[in-house]
Write a protein that binds this DNA or RNA. Sequence first.
DNA 1: GCGACAG
DNA 2: ATCTTGTCGC
Length: 273
Amino acid sequence: MENIHGTSLSSQINNWTGIQESLRRRLVLEDDFKWRVPTHEDGSEENSIAETLKYVGGVDLSFLKDDPSIACAGLVVVDLDNFNVVYDDFSVVQLQIPYIPGFLAFREAPILLELLEKVKHDAPLFYPQLLMVDGNGLLHPQGKGSVGFGLACHLGVIANLPTIGIGKNLHHVDGLVQSEVRILLEAKENCSKDLVTLTGYSGSTWGAAMRSTESSLKPIFVSIGHRISLDTALKAVKMTCKYRVPEPIRQADIRSRDYLQKHPWVAKIVQMQ
DNA sequence: GCGACAG
DNA sequence: ATCTTGTCGC
C-alpha cells in the first residue's frame, strides 16, 4: 500500500526508526539545568541565590469526536508557587500522520514544538523550565537492548528542554506488564510504598510506576524525557500532583478539550483546507 | 499463529 | 484519543 508520496508505511517506519536513533544520540539522562527543585522548607526562608523551579509546562492533544484527524494541541504553564495557570495557548490542526504505537512523536511533536516556539517568542518570561508530556520518554520500545525514545525524549531533544514523560497506561516493554506492576503496588507488603521502579527483564530501568496521590489506586507511569534524572523527575511529578495526573498535563488536557468545544468553527475551517 | 501495542 | 450517567463518598 502506497501513500500519496509513493512511500510505503513500512519504509516510512524505517525512516522514523533512523530518525529516532539519530536524535537518541543527543539525549541527556542527567539533571542539566540551573534551577533546583523547591523543598517544603523553602516557603519561610528563601535565602538561596540559586534559581528554583517555578514554571512547569504541560502539553496534551484533544481530538474531534467526528473527525479524529482534527486535534487541538494545548500548552499550559503552571506556577508552582500557587498552582495557577499563568499561560495557555492552543492550536487546532489536521494531523497528517496516523497514530502508530512507538511513533507517536512523528504525529504530535511538530505541533507541540510550534507552541513552544511561540511562547518563547511571545511570552519568554513564561517559557517553562521543565515540560511534562503526555506520553512516554525512555519507557518506549527501541531495539538494541537499550531503553527507548518516546515522545517526551523526542520533544525534549528537538526543543532542547528538560522533559518528563507521563503515561496513564503502561506501554508493555521488556517484559513489563501493567497488571503485574499494579499487583506490586497494591500488595500488602507494599501498601506504604507508592513507587515501583520499572526494571525490565533485561535489567534496564525504564522509569517508575507511581501512585501519585493517596486516593488514586491506579498508577501513572513516569519516565525520563531529556536533561533530567529519574529521581528529580519523580520529585517534580509528585510535587505537581493535586490529582492523579500532574497538574500541568491535566490542565492542558482539560483546556484543549474545552477549546474544541467552545470553538467548533475553528475545527470546521481547519477541516476545509 | 496469537496477542500486545503511549496517544 | 473518543463514545458515556449516574453514583457513592469525603
